[in-house]
Design a protein around this nucleic acid. Structure first.
Length: 805
RNA sequence: GGGCGAGUGGUGGAAUUGGUAUACACGACGGACUUAAAAUCCGUUUCCUUUAAGGAUUGAGGGUUCGAGUCCCUCCUUGCCCACCA
């Protein structure tokens, strides 16, 4: 038989599959499986991470299809976004042309993977027929009071010249370009994600998602329970409210700290301290978040005012410091230096009093934040922290000094961007009418194409009179269009609803098709979206559910996270490190099947790991071995019944193993068992000691089991075996539980837990304890002669263990 | 500082969830085929002592158990996420 040529073979089947429409999505699914991958950004090149996401995802989709599922496996492009704009600025191109060029290149690359994508369902978020409906969703949010404009301190990336959502700031830096983020006061558009905060938290429990991702979302939402407490300000009618999770430590609150931006700062500041306070506020305001974090030492200034600790009635000084954040709680704290590290540090630096109120190690040199018995706490002394918390809150409530309070870290989603290449926000600003939404019938608000950029990257929309100048839809007078566009995460927060019918004209999604296909059964993508896309998509789904547009409230029933493929040196692939692996180099030489096998075999799917060019050889060899095995004709040389029984048994064990492992995405062990079987079958083939019929059954089953992993190779082999229909439409082989069972079992013999021997019994005899012990004693007679057996443990079907003195 | 995870041969990794540790693959070494090389095939390959037979071994130390890679405690190393969040 001739050598396998993956390149010509893959091209052959790619063509046949496309022409025959093999992967058309069934129009009326009865047994649906919606298999989705996170759609790519059209950067211009499909990288190894894409392959690692899409290849194994396709294996699962094919596996589902062979199990009789009606599979929807679509693909599209998340096509708006900054890189297009930056490329356009750098190279003097148009953002839309650059994007279209990239999507066509990447579509060709995607086709090579050998996935079952239904290309008629392609989605591109930068096309008017798509973003019309992104705008529609914005209007729905607006009308429901869930989209609003707010003036406030926002994250500003000076390099990308736009604001960013909290989720897009990583360690004080822009997650796109790594520039330090500045804080600016700007009026911006927000989505009220916080209105869904409790369902977003509670519904995580019901999802079949990795715990890691659920924990990340929980942490990001950041629910904490505590109390809001008012401290009366000495010599004023105002009071200063604080939030604390440790009301049980209130007797140890020896001073207070307010954020520099706190509205009461000016009122609290005495004349003597005003100059110092103002200088401090100015200095704090000019710091970036990074400066704040990196300043190891606490800084702060005394305001000159005092408040009364409601528990101790003692006057406590009020300080200003930037270690208290205006954005969380009330922007003011009661400082308990004995039991909070930061307060302790501050008290030490400025010589403030430290009073221990929770029993435990001394707080002379180091604070401790343990819970325990209260000390120095008036009537509450002696109570345990937990009890004290509720009793102190009850006392505060009874005296109108405070109340139980739940606090979250999640903020509303800032969605406006001062950029060109995005979905225009459908709003008109009118001097008479104020903010006027674009009427639904006027959607889409078209983004002008073929725009030239200025040198500074300023959005061309700002200088486009045709775009800006518009009549007010309400009063008809001259008005101005909103020039901000939406965060691209808005585009991707609903795309999965459109795949079931991407041609639909009467709304963002076809309610009938959505009912048929949604929610997504299996969603596969990287963990980097844990608190971005995945949270936003859940929010939008819950919003559309609450308005009656959807009858489910979680979009992704099951989530699988693939790990990250690293460079051969074990580092993240990056241009600067020069360790980027281009999948095309391997695909063009060894074929897509080999790349798929390598990626699935290299280790657990959720862990990823370094790409090792040497190790890649193994998957290439495996494919050739399979080819040799299946294309070499078989002749029965000598018939041997035990050999035939063994072949059957091994085949059925293989079917079981591949079935179970693939079901739970353990591709690496599924493939290793396929390799084992192929090695074994080659030996059987050489000996020729099984019947032709059994051999044929084995090879036929093997090719079916291989089909989801190496779709091109399996299809060719299937044809060579004389079949006329596609292997990808075959039913998955079933295993016979009787054949999976072994006739004989190996029982091990231990002495004091150490392996000393073994013997073989018929399976039906492996459960008679006395027999097993007798057989073991017989074999161990010599060793047991000299010692006293004090106990014998017999585990049926497993082992006999003699415990000796 | 907080949350979650991981540590098994020269390397990537298996291990029926408490019952024969090191499957499968890579690499290496030896051999066959070849004028030669590639490819392919066969053998060896955790370590120590080595003729045999043993003994040791899952980051370190302790514990529970007849029996621990697996469970518990302490420590070390490391990855990811969050972070002056009160």
């Amino acid at each position: 038989m001739k050598k396998y040529n993956p390149i010509t073979n893959e091209a052959k089947w790619r063509k046949i599959w496309q022409e025959s429409g093999l992967y058309k999505t069934p129009s009326t699914p009865t047994n649906k499986s919606y298999n989705l991958v996170m759609f790519p950004y059209p950067s211009g090149n499909l990288h190894i991470g894409h392959w690692y996401n899409f290849g194994p995802a396709d294996t699962l989709a094919r596996y589902s299809k062979m199990h009789g599922k009606d599979v929807l496996q679509p693909i599209g492009f998340d096509a708006f976004g900054l890189p297009a704009e930056n490329a356009a600025i750098a190279r003097g191109l148009m953002a839309d042309e650059w994007t279209d060029h990239n999507t066509s290149i990447m579509t060709e690359q995607l086709k090579k993977i050998g996935t079952m994508y239904d290309w008629d369902r392609m989605i591109n978020t930068s096309k008017p027929e798509y973003y019309k409906w992104t705008q529609w969703i914005f209007l729905k949010l607006l009308h429901a009071g869930k989209a609003y404009q707010k003036d406030g301190l926002v994250n500003w990336c000076p390099s990308d010249k736009t604001v960013l959502a909290n989720e897009q700031v990583i360690n004080g830096k822009c997650d796109r370009c790594g520039t330090e983020v500045e804080r600016k006061n700007l009026k911006q558009w927000y989505f009220k994600i916080t209105d869904y905060i409790e369902p977003l938290l509670a519904d995580l429990d019901s999802l079949d998602w990795p715990d890691r991702i659920k924990d990340m979302q929980r942490n990001w939402i950041g629910k904490s329970e505590g109390a809001k407490i008012a401290f009366a300000i000495n010599g004023s009618n105002s009071s200063l409210a604080v939030y604390t999770t440790r009301p049980d430590t209130i007797f140890g609150a020896t001073f207070m700290v307010v954020a520099p931006e706190h509205p009461l700062v000016s009122e609290l500041t005495s004349e003597d301290n005003r100059a110092a306070i103002q200088a401090y506020i100015k200095q704090a305001g000019s710091k970036t978040d990074i400066d704040r974090m990196e300043s190891a030492e606490k800084t702060g200034v005394f305001t000159g005012s005092y408040a009364v600790n409601p528990a101790t009635k003692v006057n406590v000084p009020i300080w200003v410091s930037d270690y208290v954040l205006m954005g969380y709680g009330t922007g003011a704290i009661m400082a308990v230096p004995a039991h909070d590290e930061r307060d302790f540090e501050f008290a030490r630096k400025f010589g403030l009093e430290i009073i221990q109120v929770i029993d435990g190690p001394s707080v002379q040199d180091k604070s401790h934040n343990l819970t325990g018995k209260l000390v120095n706490s008036g009537d509450f002394t002696g109570l345990e922290s937990n009890k004290a918390k509720s009793e102190i809150i009850a006392w505060l409530e009874a005296n109108a000094l405070g109340s139980r309070q739940i606090q979250y870290r999640l903020r509303d989603w800032l969605i406006s961007r001062q950029r060109y290449w995005g979905t225009p926000i459908p709003i008109i600003h009118c001097d008479n009418c104020g903010i006027v939404p674009v009427p639904e019938k006027d959607l889409p608000v078209l983004l002008p194409l073929k725009q030239k950029f200025g040198k500074d990257g300023r959005s061309p929309l700002l200088d486009d009179p045709d775009f800006i100048n518009v009549e007010c839809p309400d009063c008809g007078s001259k008005a101005r269009r909103e020039t901000d566009t939406m965060d691209t995460f808005v585009d991707s927060s609903w795309y999965f609803l459109r795949y079931p019918n991407p041609e639909y004209q009467d709304g963002p999604f076809d309610p009938v098709a959505v009912k048929q296909w949604l929610p997504v059964d299996q969603y596969i993508g990287g963990a980097e979206h844990a608190v971005l896309h995945l949270l936003y998509a859940r929010f939008i789904t819950k919003f559309l559910h609450s308005t009656g547009h959807l009858d489910f409230n979680e979009p992704f029933t099951k989530l699988i996270n693939q790990g990250m493929i690293l460079g051969p040196d074990g580092n993240k692939m990056s241009k600067s490190k020069g360790n980027i692996i281009d999948p095309d180099d391997y695909v063009d030489r060894y074929g897509a099947d080999a790349v798929r096998v390598y990626l699935m075999f290299m280790g657990p799917y959720d862990e990823g790991g370094p790409w090792d060019p040497k190790r890649f050889e193994g998957s290439h060899r495996f494919i050739n071995k399979v080819w040799e095995l299946c294309t070499t004709s078989y002749s029965e040389l000598q018939h041997d019944s035990p050999s035939e029984a063994e072949l059957q048994s091994k085949l059925h064990k293989l079917i079981k193993k591949v079935t179970v492992d693939t079901q739970v995405s353990k591709f690496n062990t599924a493939i290793s068992s396929l390799m084992e079987f192929v090695n074994y079958a080659a030996k059987v083939q050489a000996k020729g000691d099984v019947s032709k019929e059994q051999w044929h059954i084995a090879i036929t089953s093997l090719v079916k089991l291989l089909a989801p992993f190496v779709p091109y190779l399996a299809e060719e082999l299937w044809e060579l075996l004389g079949n006329t229909s596609s292997v990808h439409t075959q039913a998955w082989p079933e295993y016979d539980p009787e054949l999976v069972k072994d006739d004989i079992m190996t029982i091990i013999i231990q002495i004091n837990g150490k392996l000393r021997g073994q013997f073989v019994v018929n399976t039906e005899d492996a459960f008679y304890k006395d027999e097993l012990e007798r057989a073991a004693r017989e074999q161990m007679a010599d060793l047991l002669k000299t010692t006293e057996v004090v106990r014998v443990i017999v585990v049926p079907g497993k082992l006999v263990n003699f415990v000796t003195r």
